[in-house]
Computed example of a mutant assay.
Amino acid sequence: MWLLKVLVPLVRLYLCGMKVLLYQLFNRSFPLPVLPKQNGRVAIVTGGTRGMGLETARHLASLGMHVIIAGNETEEGAAAVRKIHEDGCEGKVEFIFVDLTSLKSVQQFAQTFRARGLPLHVLVNNAGTMLVPERQTVDGFEFHFCLNYLSHFLLTNLLLDILKRSGRRGCCSRIVNMSSATHYAGVMDMEDLNRRMCYSSHGAYSQSKLGLVLFTYYLQEQLTAGGFPVTVNAVDPGMVDTALYDNLWTLAQMLKKPVAKTLFRTPAEGASTAVYTAAASEMEGVGGCYLYNGQKTQSSDLSYDSELQAELWKKSCELVGLQEA
């Protein structure tokens, strides 16, 4: 039984990966259209020091946005800011520290941002980790669950009032959650969200990405019901050649290298759908969607389960110490 619980999520995840690779073999990456200038708008991009996060921050800054890169590597953050400035971007770029494996750090980041008195028009929940060995965060949460999902859930809720105030009809604030095709393989075990009964890094990763989609749909329903000028969407970047794959098994790493050169997207290509969702005129007022390769796509059947969405929201509020709205 234990072996089955480990093997099933592994097989399901790699089958998802094969499906994505086949798609990428026969379909070119989404080309970004010309996007409108974003002068005067403020964005936060988590995990913006490298990979897709850096490319997202770079592109938003090139449109004139004031971009705040949120990450846990101060030197890497300073280097990312310099790199974007050297590209001659029109917007302001800065780095603020946050450790998404610590709820206290997330709260401190939110307090730091609030103290600046800035508006917030775009929040890109991009940071993530994949297939790390079993470990717990300082708060006792499973690593993938906390970093990929729970901390972004908390951050979004702590900044939600600013997003609501910053948006207006015809010019909504936007939340972009970086999910993954692996969410199709995800199972949300509400009795064991920390995967302590039977750990599988593949299952934990898939669960965290499914959590982001469930969160996206539930939050959009709340925002729509309240008439707030904020939209939230989940995006799937495809398979992208980034450091996320550093935790693959040795054999998988060997197989990945030649495949990545021909079939994986570049970080800039992987970021394109997130940038499009954050800034395109076509996405104005559009929320509650799952986008892949620039197109609205059906997410997993499980992700549309409204009871599961509500249950996860309630449980997440309990875990991070928020009063349920």
Rank of each mutant, 00 (worst) to 15 (best):
G40H: 02
G40Q: 02
V132A: 11
L118A: 13
P36D: 05
Q111N: 15
L103M: 08
E90R: 08
H85R: 13
N72K: 03
F30V: 00
M18V: 08
V106Q: 13
P36N: 04
E75A: 10
H59E: 03
K19C: 09
K92G: 14
A79F: 00
L123F: 06
E76Y: 04
H121T: 03
L123C: 12
M65Y: 01
H121N: 08
T101K: 11
R82E: 10
K92F: 08
E86H: 14
N39S: 13
A61Q: 02
M65I: 00
H144Q: 09
R135Y: 12
F145M: 15
F145E: 14
A115D: 13
T137S: 15
L103I: 01
V67R: 00
A79L: 04
I68T: 06
P119T: 11
V122F: 07
I96C: 12
V122D: 11
L54Q: 04
E86V: 04
R114P: 12
L35H: 01
M65V: 00
F26G: 12
T74K: 06
Q24M: 08
L25G: 10
G140H: 04
P33R: 00
E86F: 05
C89W: 03
P133R: 07
E55L: 07
Q108N: 14
V132N: 09
L32T: 06
